[in-house]
Design a protein around this nucleic acid. Sequence first.
DNA 1: TAGTGGTCTAGACCACAAT
DNA 2: TTGTGGTCTAGACCACTAC
Lengths: 246, 246
Amino acid sequence: MGAGPQISLDRSSPVPLYFQIAEQLEGAIVSGALAPGDKIDNELDLAGRLGLSRPTVRQAIQVLVDKGMVVRKRGVGTQVVHGKVRRSVELTSLYDDLTAAGQDPRTEVLGLRRVEADEDVARELQLEPGAPVWSVERLRYIGDEPLALMHNLLPASLLDLDAIDLTRVGLYAALRDAGIWMRVAKQRIGSRRADARESRVLAERKGAPLLTMQRTAYDDAGRAVEYGEHAYRPDLYAFEITLVDR
Amino acid sequence: MGAGPQISLDRSSPVPLYFQIAEQLEGAIVSGALAPGDKIDNELDLAGRLGLSRPTVRQAIQVLVDKGMVVRKRGVGTQVVHGKVRRSVELTSLYDDLTAAGQDPRTEVLGLRRVEADEDVARELQLEPGAPVWSVERLRYIGDEPLALMHNLLPASLLDLDAIDLTRVGLYAALRDAGIWMRVAKQRIGSRRADARESRVLAERKGAPLLTMQRTAYDDAGRAVEYGEHAYRPDLYAFEITLVDR
DNA sequence: TAGTGGTCTAGACCACAAT
DNA sequence: TTGTGGTCTAGACCACTAC
């Protein structure tokens, strides 16, 4: 005991100490230096070895627990979970997801209009019915294959989408540029048949199954800032999710 | 300032103080006593008012942040998120989900066999190919409608499924009874056409879209303990997920 | 009994937002 | 400048597990 992976700390870095530890432990797990089933040094040893207080070390390990990479058991210790690390759905856009996966997504803007919110949209976005919203419809390609048809609605008061080239940046990037930071998203994932138009733009047969996602996203002030209805080609996309019991 | 909902603490209770606070704040949000956009008392005030240290209060609020019910912003405060509270997918079985939603799920066991793990299953469950596993296929009804066709595989060394009446308890309940506690699950959600048999047992038309989920679950020792392939009728079921950027 | 994580205290200093 | 959450310290006692 007491060996474990080498961890180096930079106290002059703006990166919090607990995060530096978490990053390096995660690296050791991903690289295989810490194998599934291995125990991580207990919190007191690790704190002593790094010259930190126990709560700081504990906070670091909690990051890994939240990611589902390790499990803690009182009286036993902290063990690396079996099974390959599967990237979970995070609070990122599809564009970010694909870019991170080394893909090269391309986006075609099918429509960008300023419309009045109907009752459903107004409810989702916490607006008055009739309030101005941006309605943007985009088709995302992966290589030459159409992957997803995306319809998003955003309060027009938040930003000026008209001036933004959505073929070049993702929607979330445009929001970030406008100073809007997503913090919470509520999604509903389901499935249904493609209608005539969907099957045409997605190059699927009529009536083919689609994977659908409806999402409402909220910013760091708790405001609803985006409502989206997306349809994915299920042969090209699936949602991966890691659930943790804490 | 300094008003906020009344919170009562029971120091003799085995329920941790931070959890008692979180429960009561959550209750105030769900009941509407704390409305969307409202600010929660700041951490120091709340700590002072309750006679607790700040880290304890902070831990309580973190529970709500993790649930996506409030957002914190440095220099500003903690605010209740807009939008109705949507129950998120948690680490529970479909049976538990439905029971909690006030439904009355019924289960038909279509098959329960002890088989040898093929390569795919062995890899998912971290076993040697050929190791004995339970293979159980069940059909879940909601009312009179078939809702989901579920195929699960579990290491036979873990428990004796043969002796368990799976029509009466969920699979996860059977595992809990055997002293096995799920801690982490990795899911992949997609969609495809129903094949002939699936459309028959699910009372769907042939080729109808199905919502599919593959899951590997791990216990509190990090062991893979269950692999499942489930198919849901998309007109009766969808996955709801809350994502939080922490 | 020894070892582990779970909870809790009573502070400290800092970074960022609003005014 | 003031107020907020973000980070960190240096301990304490408890509950549970394994032996």
